[in-house]
């Protein structure tokens, strides 16, 4: 079942990329998806049952909307810092504690942090994220944790755990 889910997803991705319905193309897609599934299916989708839960998909859509909004905000933030003559930066690397358990959720959280205003993930050590922050507005752990990951952590918990 896990292999089948992955195979169908990869095949659809191939069809979307090539965008023709020729027989040769379909056969090539099946072969490529099959090889990829055989090699990688044990590494991904460790809990594939979650894929068929509509509530999780709903939260995923909310998450994507929030994420795009944060991305746009991030760009105006960078534009402001770059164009301002005095350059208002106060950079530093802070340690942020996250309560997510699964690896995939942590990866997505790290990616989200990288795309949001003024922050970029440097490293992960178990549940601690090291985040480079362009404007350290507070050195109190509870305040900056809320500022950096508060928006995403709850949504990701709803999606993946």
């Amino acid at each position: 079942m896990k292999q089948l889910t992955m195979f169908i997803f990869l095949f659809l991705l191939w069809m979307a990329f090539s965008f023709t319905l020729e027989t040769a193309n379909i056969i090539a897609g099946i072969v490529a998806a099959l090889i990829t599934t055989i090699i990688f299916s044990n590494r991904f989708l460790t809990s594939w049952q979650k894929l068929f839960n509509p509530v999780r998909w709903f939260w995923l859509i909310i998450y994507i909307i929030v994420f795009i909004w944060e991305c746009i905000k991030a760009n105006f933030d960078v534009a402001y810092r770059v164009l301002s003559p005095r350059m208002p930066i106060k950079p530093g690397i802070v340690k942020v504690h996250c309560s997510l358990k699964t690896d995939f959720a942590r990866v997505l959280l790290a990616n989200s942090i990288t795309m949001t205003p003024g922050t970029i993930t440097v490293d992960i050590n178990n549940s601690d994220l090291y985040v480079h922050w362009i404007y350290v507005s507070s050195e109190d752990a509870s305040i900056y944790t809320k500022k950096i990951i508060g928006r995403f952590e709850n949504l990701l918990k709803r999606i993946f755990e």
Partner: peptide, 10 residues
């Protein structure tokens, strides 16, 4: 300009 570096501890 850097004010804080927690990564150094690691």
């Amino acid at each position: 300009k850097t004010v804080v570096d927690h990564y150094k501890e690691l």
